[in-house]
């Protein structure tokens, strides 16, 4: 067990290091000049040179990298060239929004996908299963940019049940907060439901053909108990892996709903920063997001050991 975590932790450090290089390089190898962004296209070459020097952008790449990394280690991710907002601040205001979106959408996804899969996998390819399974293809075909406008059109503009845009912090008014978050959360939950359901269903179907399920039946256990206590846990590997990748993708991947519902999450801040060539912001956010992604995968890996003791003790 200890060895397992030690090895994983070393990997984590290595991966984090590579990611920092990647986040740095991508931004710096791009053509284009940040001085143009800051000073506008018509300023003199001299002014540009001064600015680049001020920003340290005239130094060799590796020096810029180490300077940046040292600052990162001190908790300083830099600040926007444009409005001087610090990256840490952008993250601190944006992250709670994304977290809430992810939590609500994932709760919905699991609450729908798991019971449905447990139900249909017992009688695969029967009418109920076929309807549910084809239905999830429908969900899969409704990415946020397709479904979110429709949700807005129907539930916000048409029925006026929910506000169309805006954000109220949870701490300020939990009820209003929830009302603002429901539509965007639902908009990003469809894909999760479909993926989780399909993976769990297919793993359950193969688990249910295992001898140990027949064995559990031969003990006289109820179907319900067999499904939850015997079949579910060994069938969650693909589901866990998918959830890790999916949630990781959502950290910066909710920019569509953030844009549409005017939420200032990390995703849309990142897209905006890229679009405005706001180097340090892009670099800082993408580093944090990639790290969060990797850490999430490590958590998933840990969960594998919880689900199946063979993983860590083989």
């Amino acid at each position: 067990m200890g060895k397992y975590f030690l090895r994983r932790s070393i990997q984590l450090v290595v991966v984090a290091f590579i990611i920092s290089i990647l986040a740095f390089l991508l931004v710096h190898l791009l053509p284009g000049d940040p001085s143009v962004t800051i000073l506008g296209p018509n300023d003199t070459a001299q002014n540009r040179a001064i600015l680049l020097k001020q920003l340290g952008l005239n130094k060799p790449l590796w020096q810029q990298y180490t300077t940046w990394l040292t600052a990162v280690f001190h908790g300083n991710l830099g600040q926007s060239y444009l409005n001087h907002e610090s990256v840490v601040h952008i993250l601190a205001t944006g992250f709670p929004i994304d977290l809430e979106l992810i939590v609500i959408s994932q709760i919905i996804a699991f609450a729908v996908a798991i019971p449905l899969a447990l139900f249909t996998s017992r009688r695969p390819n029967r009418p109920v299963d076929n309807v549910a399974t084809t239905g999830t293809f429908g969900l899969l075909a409704l990415p946020p940019f397709v479904i979110a406008p429709i949700l807005v059109a129907v539930f916000a503009v048409g029925l006026n049940w929910f506000p169309a845009t805006g954000f109220v912090p949870l701490t300020q008014d939990p009820w209003a907060n929830l009302q603002h978050m429901i539509l965007p959360s639902v908009a990003i939950t469809f894909g999760s439901i479909a993926v989780y359901y399909r993976l769990l269903r297919s793993d359950l179907i193969s688990t249910l053909q295992q001898d140990f399920i027949t064995m559990a039946r031969s003990k006289g256990l109820s179907n319900r108990r067999i499904m939850w206590r015997h079949a579910f846990r060994p069938s969650t590997f693909s589901l866990l892996a998918a959830a890790g990748v999916n949630i990781g993708g959502l950290i910066a991947g909710t920019f569509i709903v953030e844009y549409l519902f005017a939420l200032s999450g990390i995703g849309f801040s990142l897209v905006q920063a890229v679009n405005q060539r706001d180097y340090l912001v892009v670099q800082g956010i993408s580093l944090v997001v990639a790290l969060a992604y990797v850490i999430l995968q490590f958590i998933v890996d840990f969960l594998f050991t919880v689900v199946d003791p063979r993983v860590s003790r083989g």
Binding site: Q210, D211, F212, T214, M215, A216, S218, K219, R229, H230, R233, P234, V307, D308, P309, R310
Partner: peptide, 15 residues
């Protein structure tokens, strides 16, 4: 009750 052929697969691996 029943004793199965293959004890490798007939015991629940995660219990």
């Amino acid at each position: 009750s029943m004793i199965f052929q293959d004890p490798m697969t007939a015991l629940n691996p995660v219990k």
